[in-house]
Simulated scan of single mutants.
Amino acid sequence: MLIALDARCQGSEHIKTGRPCQDFTKAAANYWKTNAYAIVADGHGGEKYFRSAEGSRLAVSSAAEAMNKVLKELLFYIKKKEVSVIDKSLKNLCSRILLLWREKVKAHFTENPLSEEELKLCEELKINIPVGEDDIFMLYGSTLLSSVYFENYEFWFSLQIGDGKTYILKEDGAVVTPKELENEKAAFGVTPSLCGKNAIEEFLYTFGFEKIAGICVMSDGLTDSFDLEKLPDFLISIKNNAIQDNEKTKTELNKYLPKLSEQGSGDDISIAGIFVKERKGYV
């Protein structure tokens, strides 16, 4: 049985400067609680990304929508363990998410013309009016992390563009980050984004056939605010508490994250997770 949890908070520095929370999250299990997904998006904080709070919301909805459409299709290949086809399907999923996000961004921009204040910002930032397509995407710039677990088939996958972290909670108690999702550009202060011209080439993804205890995805606001050596224990604690009482755990996290932001990076913080709860009499 799978339990899905997500929590986020507005960063303490964002509160001081009057900026909205630019992180967005979603986690959900299917009706039978046999597969679930966890998604986090982190809108960029720079001045030129002034609609990134909306961009992160659209990123999460695009990922959820795209995944819901392909999970049944993917399940067919998971059952047969056709690794090469699964790899191709996940690459196509990244393309679907990106295209859907761009469609949603363009629709939102059309339905919500730039305000006078936003027009002034464009002038200050030397963004041409009318705003070109590439600049529209830039205004909504966001990262994205998403993970799925199929409990019955002991199969998981994760995809990512930009910074943030994905952690796999192993059956033996180990907590690890997939090497395939390590972003080399981030080490040089460059963050790949959904708004980038080469976004499709900068998606990272990985998958595995193994029984796990859970998966967590999180924005860099959390990893920059937490002692990374203690983070595995923190995630295991969240898992254990969520299994006992998911709603209480989510409430407590939503209370704790603002304090963590204030003591740490001051950035928005978001986390989403999938955790395995053994069914009584379930084999």
Rank of each mutant, 00 (worst) to 15 (best):
C122D: 10
G18H: 13
T110M: 08
P113S: 08
V85W: 05
G11W: 05
L144M: 01
T251G: 00
V60K: 01
I271C: 00
S147R: 01
T223C: 05
G208T: 12
T223G: 07
E47W: 10
K106Y: 09
F155M: 11
D245T: 09
I236N: 09
I200Y: 09
K80W: 03
N35K: 03
K48N: 09
F188E: 15
T17G: 03
S147A: 15
A213M: 06
E182L: 12
R102M: 10
D267G: 06
T166C: 14
Y205I: 06
E13T: 00
N35C: 06
G132W: 04
K81L: 00
A186V: 14
K79N: 11
L253H: 07
C94V: 03
E262Y: 12
S61A: 08
F150M: 06
T143E: 08
W101K: 08
A242H: 04
L228M: 15
Y49P: 01
V175E: 06
I271K: 02
S158G: 11
F137M: 13
E229G: 14
K277G: 01
L114I: 03
K165M: 10
T17F: 07
L145P: 03
C94I: 01
I168R: 11
G173K: 09
F157S: 10
T110W: 04
Y167W: 10
S158P: 08
R102T: 08
G196C: 09
R19T: 00
E54M: 08
F188K: 14
E13W: 12
L99D: 12
K69S: 12
S52L: 00
V60I: 01
Y31R: 13
K248I: 05
G273K: 03
E133A: 06
Y37S: 01
T110Y: 06
G11L: 07
N92V: 08
D267F: 06
D172F: 02
V276T: 02
A174F: 13
N92P: 07
I127A: 06
V131M: 12
E47D: 14
F109M: 05
R102Y: 11
L204S: 14
I269E: 01
A36S: 05
D245I: 09
G173S: 13
I78L: 04
K91Q: 14
F275A: 01
K259I: 10
S61I: 10
I39N: 04
G273V: 01
T110L: 10
K179T: 13
L98Y: 10
Y153D: 07
F76Y: 14
I274Y: 04
S158D: 10
A29I: 00
T25W: 01
A199N: 05
D227P: 09
I200L: 15
L139H: 05
P113Y: 07
N198H: 13
I129H: 06
L144S: 03
G164N: 08
S12K: 09
T251C: 09
I168F: 07
G196L: 05
P113T: 00
F203S: 06
N92R: 15
K126E: 15
E47L: 13
F203V: 08
A4T: 02
K185L: 15
K250N: 02
H108A: 10
C195F: 06
E154N: 14
S219M: 02
E116D: 15
G214R: 06
N152C: 00
W32A: 10
